[in-house]
Design a protein around this nucleic acid. Structure first.
Lengths: 227, 227
DNA sequence: ACAAATTTAGACAGGCTTGTCCAATTCGTC
DNA sequence: GACGAATTGGACAAGCCTGTCTAAATTTGT
């Protein structure tokens, strides 16, 4: 385990671990107390390190804040694109598949620790670091909407939906499945699994009512009405 | 100008005026800097009064903050209900009337100074004053949704829409007409008139596609189904 | 014009926070 | 076991902020 290149022993082992736990604790404290109210001593205590270690690793409060935002942005984007990769391109039950996708999106990206923290930091400090959050906006929501719009366009092309503008549809999809969670988000709360499921179900139903395939053979429409 | 009751001289004339300008300046500073970062000297300067006057009127920082939130809540609610009163109960052009209503809602309640400030304070400090913002939640969004749901139910009853759950429809209406403004709201920006109009138009179109009257006697196919 | 209330500017103590410095200690590696 | 790097705890100066106090100036009502 010692000689040569051992499998899982990196030179800065506990060093890097401390760095991570400082960033994690800082994210939590910055969110709870705001940038001005965040206290380096508290961050250090919550990370289980001394104050001096915080300064050794990150220089000063502002650099630490930037490191926190970059960290959260990166992890959130990774989660979002991983989830979008699971979009139901060949749905068997369109409603059920889209509801499941929306629930995954919420659970893995929007309601989890990173998502809640990043959202709050953007809302609270967005005005003070324009370039930092402009970067997030391009890399995050911008690409999210594009990717999602492409998936919806594909569903429309395959005849499952009737969509005018896929970009608008993608944004409206996200707005609809989160419609009933807005207040909870605003107050910083975490919706229950039931709330997420209900909002997603209601949202997807309305979405499908609006974007259901419209140009279909008359016979099929009649059959649909009968059912 | 001296004897009797002069026309525009209230006993606490400039006194009350100063109180208002202190609250206004405080709202601005609390939003920009956060509660912890807000500086009483800066608030006093921005209000054009001395620091001591701030303390004379409001006691301490926390009481001032509460006064600001109550003030914003009251004004925002008043604006919201005034706007809901202009809901198109007897629409001539349903789409155009709903778009105009959505634009009014955005301009007068959500994007104006009070709306932006209150939203930011709730997001930033909601966790620290649970009872204060719980009160807002009941009086504001709770009653807003109810009132709006009642209006939509009326439209459905009159045969203009086909709605399952009016409460869900009301929340989804608001979510849809704001779908394209979310990011701007998050970053604390003010959307342009064009953006508001576009988001409202796209949102109302999708809303009407989803909730358009389905069982109408107009279509021939529908008549067939009726039989 | 007079008297009362309000406002102002400034000084002030007390507390808290950031960021630095340093000696002692612990940790990882050879 | 020994060496060097990282970490710790604490002291420290400097600055900022809140909230109070005072005496002078201003405004308000009569």
């Amino acid at each position: 385990m010692k000689p040569g290149v051992s499998p899982d022993t990196f030179p800065p082992r506990s060093h890097e671990a401390k760095r991570v736990s400082v960033v994690d604790a800082a994210a939590s404290v910055f969110c709870r107390e705001g940038y001005a109210g965040a206290n380096i001593d508290l961050i250090a205590a919550e990370a289980g390190v001394s104050r001096q270690t915080v300064y050794n690793h990150h220089g000063d409060k502002e650099k630490l804040f930037v490191a926190v935002v970059r960290d959260l942005t990166e992890r959130c984007n990774a989660g979002i694109f991983a989830t979008i990769a699971s979009f139901p391109d060949q749905p068997t039950d369109l409603e059920a598949d889209l509801v499941a996708f929306a629930v995954r999106m919420n659970r893995n990206c929007i309601c989890n620790r990173d998502g809640r923290f990043l959202r709050k930091l953007i809302q609270a400090e967005g005005g003070r670091y324009p370039e930092l959050f402009a970067e997030w906006r391009e890399q995050g929501p911008g690409r999210t909407w594009s990717a999602l719009a492409a998936r919806f366009a594909r569903l429309a092309f395959a005849g499952h939906l009737s969509i005018g503008d896929p970009d608008v549809a993608a944004r409206q999809f996200l707005a609809l499945v989160n419609a009933e969670l807005q207040i909870t988000f605003m107050l910083g709360g975490v919706p229950t699994e039931e709330e997420v499921l209900r909002s997603a179900t209601n949202g997807v139903r309305t979405f499908l009512s609006a974007f259901a395939r419209k140009k279909s053979p008359a016979g099929k429409q009649a059959a649909l009405v009968h059912a």
